[in-house]
Design a binder for these strands. Structure first.
Lengths: 174, 174
DNA sequence: AAATACGTTCAGTTTACACTGAACGCTATG
DNA sequence: CATAGCGTTCAGTGTAAACTGAACGTATTT
């Protein structure tokens, strides 16, 4: 018997919640994140009150270790946040309802990070290529020039994406 | 000895290309796609002429099976496309240089697909919830109403993302 | 027809990672 | 001080997916 049945009297309502939680798990799994992540968030999102770790464990029937790491992951993305309950040592969590903020911290920020490292990688290659260019004879430069041009285009495209991710217009479209 | 060394006389230039290919592999791997994907594309992107499967195999030192499936994956995303060479039975491929088109087919399209299935899942839950609402007594409805409201918000947010992905402004920002 | 050249497919392997169970550290309580 | 409650950490497990090697089908050449 799970804790959801304790809070929710109607079995139909509980069933609907469970299906939503299951859907959340499938969705996050399809994005390469684990299924527990989506389940935990979905549960907290539907819960009328903040939940502590053990309640989540009992509800989802997953290990406490999974919930612990998952919750910190979600917290890092501003998808859930800590809630202190007076006179209770346990850590309670509730879902962030502002999806826009979630998207910024959970999707755009990590994306920017990866794009940055990609740009840095290309810049390193360009750098070593320019050094190589100096000590090559003319007929080799023709080839190198083509490569250099393509590297430059790749880097500029990455920069364009970065600019887009930082563009304030993007916020307004949400 | 790899084929790149046959096309490119300068060892420094070849080294730079290999580093770029390696970077491509790291990048795609960081996005959950395999590392071969990024390597194959990077190789084709820098190659002055279209390459056939065996040339890619020899260059990257991966199995032919990997290259075969990877190339079809890339082709599906419009990241590379087939090139026929007169009088040659082999399949040659060259990289798409239009990154914008790549982004549309390789990123936005699959993303839209996943968002759609997520919306459908939520709609199913909402549907079954509404059915459940009918046969519940009043005090249960209060709880159900809260859940219904949150489900609706989640669905609307997903719809908003879908709208954003289809928004023509997005194209103009690139 | 036999043999060769290409690309694809499929079973098996290896690798990567989500997840678990148990031990640990910390804090509060008896 | 001992004990219990709570969250975190870490080694180990299980599983999914990337990747491989070999067999296969098809088309081309001799």
């Amino acid at each position: 018997m799970n804790s959801l049945a304790k809070q929710v009297e109607s079995p139909e309502l509980a069933a609907a919640c469970l299906r939503f939680i299951e859907s959340g798990g499938h969705t996050t799994q399809s994005f390469g994140l684990g299924q527990v992540l989506g389940q935990v968030f979905a549960l907290l999102y539907l819960s009328p009150k903040p939940l502590c770790l053990d309640e989540i464990v009992e509800e989802l029937d997953v290990s406490k270790a999974s919930v612990s790491t998952t919750v910190r992951q979600l917290e890092e993305w501003s998808a859930v946040h800590h809630v202190w309950v007076k006179g209770d040592r346990r850590d309670f969590y509730e879902a962030e309802t502002d999806f826009k903020a979630m998207l910024r911290h959970g999707v755009l920020a990590p994306l920017r990070k990866k794009m940055d490292t990609a740009v840095v990688r290309i810049e390193h290659v360009e750098e070593s290529l320019h050094k190589a260019l100096e000590k090559t004879n003319p007929e080799q430069r023709a080839q190198a020039r083509i490569v250099a041009e393509r590297l430059q285009r790749a880097r500029k495209f990455h920069a364009k994406i970065n600019a887009l991710l930082n563009n304030p217009w993007l916020d307004r479209l949400l």
